[in-house]
Deep mutational scan, measured.
Amino acid sequence: KFNKERVIAIGEIMRLPNLNSLQVVAFINSLRDDPSQSANLLAEAKKLNDAQAP
């Protein structure tokens, strides 16, 4: 279950337009470290993406 959620979360994070490459890598590394947190990490990535919108 967590592996599928992690793959989906990674794909979504990679498509967030307002994150820089270091932020994307940090979120992906966090997902690798704890796949059970996929939903929480994706939500945090989306919040950061929205906050950094031009």
Rank of each mutant, 00 (worst) to 15 (best):
M14K: 07
P54S: 09
E44S: 09
P54R: 08
N40R: 13
P17G: 06
L19G: 01
A26D: 05
P17L: 11
A53N: 08
L16C: 02
M14P: 01
D50Y: 08
K47N: 07
V25H: 11
R32G: 12
E5T: 05
V25R: 14
N49E: 01
A53R: 08
I8G: 03
L42R: 04
M14Q: 05
P35Q: 05
N40D: 09
V24S: 03
N3D: 15
A53V: 08
M14H: 04
L22N: 06
L31D: 00
N29M: 14
I8M: 11
L48Q: 04
Q37C: 06
N3M: 05
N29P: 00
V7E: 15
K47D: 06
E5Q: 09
K46W: 08
A51R: 12
N49R: 01
I28A: 03
L48P: 00
R32S: 13
A26V: 11
Q23R: 01
D33M: 12
R15I: 05
I28R: 02
N29G: 05
N29Y: 09
A43T: 11
Q23N: 02
I28M: 12
I10S: 03
F2G: 12
A26I: 10
F27G: 00
V24P: 00
N29S: 13
A43F: 09
E12N: 08
L19W: 00
A26R: 11
N3F: 09
N40Y: 13
L48C: 04
I8R: 12
F2N: 13
D33R: 13
S38E: 03
R6W: 15
F27P: 00
N18Q: 02
A45Y: 05
A43H: 07
K4W: 15
F27R: 00
I10P: 01
Q23D: 03
I10Y: 04
N18F: 11
V7N: 08
N40M: 12
S38L: 12
D33K: 13
A53L: 06
L48T: 03
E12S: 09
S21P: 11
F27Q: 00
R15Q: 06
F2P: 13
I8N: 04
A43V: 07
V25W: 14
K47V: 07
I13V: 03
K46T: 05
K1S: 15
D34G: 03
A26S: 11
D33A: 13
P17K: 13
L42M: 05
P54I: 10
R15A: 07
I28D: 01
N40V: 06
N29L: 15
S36R: 08
P54N: 10
S36C: 10
N3E: 15
I28T: 03
Q52V: 04
N20I: 06
G11L: 09
R15G: 05
P17R: 13
K47G: 05
K4Y: 08
L22Y: 13
A43G: 06
N3S: 04
L19T: 00
M14L: 09
L31Q: 00
R15Y: 04
L42W: 04
L16M: 12
D50P: 01
K1C: 15
K1L: 05
L31I: 12
F27H: 00
I10Q: 07
K46Y: 12
M14D: 01
N3W: 15
A9D: 02
I13S: 00
A39W: 14
E5G: 06
I28S: 02
I10E: 13
N3C: 15
E12C: 14
R6C: 15
K1H: 13
P35Y: 07
I10W: 04
S21H: 10
P54Q: 10
Q37T: 06
N49M: 03
Q52A: 05
R15L: 07
A9T: 09
N40S: 13
A9I: 08
K46N: 05
I8V: 07
A9K: 03
K47P: 01
I10V: 06
N20S: 12
L31F: 04
L22A: 10
L19F: 02
A51M: 11
N29C: 15
S36A: 11
M14A: 04
E12R: 14
G11Q: 11
E5I: 10
V25I: 13
D34M: 08
D50A: 12
N40G: 07
L42P: 00
N49H: 02
A53F: 07
V7G: 05
M14C: 14
E12V: 14
A53Y: 06
G11F: 14
N3L: 06
Q37A: 10
Q52R: 05
F2Q: 13
P54V: 10
Q37V: 06
S38N: 15
E5N: 07
F2Y: 09
N20Y: 11
A43Y: 14
L16E: 00
N3A: 06
I10N: 02
L16K: 00
L19K: 00
P17S: 09
R15N: 08
N29A: 13
G11N: 11
R6Q: 15
K4L: 04
V24N: 01
E44H: 08
N20P: 01
Q52I: 04
V24R: 06
S30R: 15
N18K: 02
L16R: 00
N49L: 01
S38G: 04
A39F: 14
K47R: 11
S30A: 10
N3Q: 10
R6L: 15
Q23F: 02
K47I: 10
L16N: 01
I10T: 04
L41G: 01
A45P: 01
K46V: 06
A9R: 03
A39Y: 14
N18D: 02
D34E: 06
A26M: 12
L48G: 01
S38H: 15
F2T: 12
V7P: 02
A45K: 00
A53Q: 10
E5C: 15
F2C: 15
Q23T: 02
L31M: 05
E12I: 15
N18I: 01
A51H: 07
I8S: 04
V7Q: 14
V7A: 14
P54A: 12
